[in-house]
Design a binder for these strands. Sequence first.
DNA 1: CAGGAAAGTCATCGACTGATGACTCTGCTG
DNA 2: CAGCAGAGTCATCAGTCGATGACTTTCCTG
Lengths: 230, 230
Amino acid sequence: MSTPESPRPRRRDRAATRAALLAAARLRFARDGYDATGVRDIAADVGVDPALVFRYFGSKQRLFAEVTAGAGAEVAAGATAGVGTGAAAGAGAGAEEAGDDGGAADLPLWLLRSAVAADWSDYAGEHPFVALLRSSGHEDARTQLQQQICDSYVRQLAAVSPGPDRELRAELLSAWLLGIGVARSVIRTPRLAEADFAELAPYFAEIAAMLLNRPAAAADNTSNTPAAAD
Amino acid sequence: MSTPESPRPRRRDRAATRAALLAAARLRFARDGYDATGVRDIAADVGVDPALVFRYFGSKQRLFAEVTAGAGAEVAAGATAGVGTGAAAGAGAGAEEAGDDGGAADLPLWLLRSAVAADWSDYAGEHPFVALLRSSGHEDARTQLQQQICDSYVRQLAAVSPGPDRELRAELLSAWLLGIGVARSVIRTPRLAEADFAELAPYFAEIAAMLLNRPAAAADNTSNTPAAAD
DNA sequence: CAGGAAAGTCATCGACTGATGACTCTGCTG
DNA sequence: CAGCAGAGTCATCAGTCGATGACTTTCCTG
């Protein structure tokens, strides 16, 4: 339904057909998840016979692996090169001229924008990580997800964070980014689902700075922290 | 594998068999998701014929609906009655004597403990929300998830938060809780997956207090301001 | 134009899914 | 003991899934 089929019988082109199948699979997997996506659906989107999927990719699993590898590469490329350049980010929000003072301090905001405002129309409108989460029942998806999140989010956030426990704090912030994506597009929490980048940025920037820059927060508020644990 | 089958042919008891099927389904759905769970699997766990599932629940969908309704009720009951009483929370961490100072200020920490330290062994060891997320491909699951999260998390967090935008801030905190659960059990981020409640509580308490108590943070820092904290 | 490599199609397989209805067996009651 | 209501089982259906291999059609090349 997404790809309008042309009346012409589609000129034979191995590379183009393969790419079209890959794009259709990317969209389907992102929107419906691995299990709910059938090989016949993907082929129907492109307008070819389902057998071509196996001809070009070997199996549904391998097609999925190729899709997720591409998604991971795309996110990783953006995360490493995006900060400071501001490339490939402008979608809905208007605030694009982020101060290019240092770059490192902008990383959390750049990740937030990538999560809520970037153009992920190739992935059913969601950040690839959230889309990949739909297929988390499969080992391949989880492995890719863990590796890509650690590489793209945690490692870089930890790199701009001083003090001990900086990995834990980086993972906490990564978890927040992920949770925001899930809440917006999967659960559709009313207020958050319609918020744009400009509305979330102040809160996120303040807390990200606090979390990343402060090694060990105030440990005195033991109102109900387990004091006798250790 | 989870339910040890007794060698005796299982005395006939409609209520007990129904309850056993429900428990087995809860575990399977939580661990593997709706699609990956077969009616035959559930019946095999209990040791009865798959046809009994349809006899007692009508369809797989209705069985799933009953499971999720129970999960939602369990979470909601804990969220409404748990703060101040500290009931049904002690699992891994030993501290149960929550400071009964006010109750409202403890809500975020209570939710965190419920997410990372409560005994959810009936749900494959994960918070029901995270478990339910595995079946998010189905409308029923998403509806339940949205309703329960709004009722159990957002509404109560917004109730203890002053000022404008308190719903958005409550949803942001709810998203963080959700993201922490996903990162810990689905993605298995290394540092966060092994952290316990005591390790996370200081960070979470500080940021939750900041997010909930401050109506609108500094709105000028769209780029980066770690300075205008307090 | 002739031929062949390759792009694409067709029919079909075997396994598995949720679901149905007729059946058997158990255990309580009179 | 007889009988009956109902708990549990069996065989089976219709549909879908991923996957395979033989087939047909296209298009480039000589």
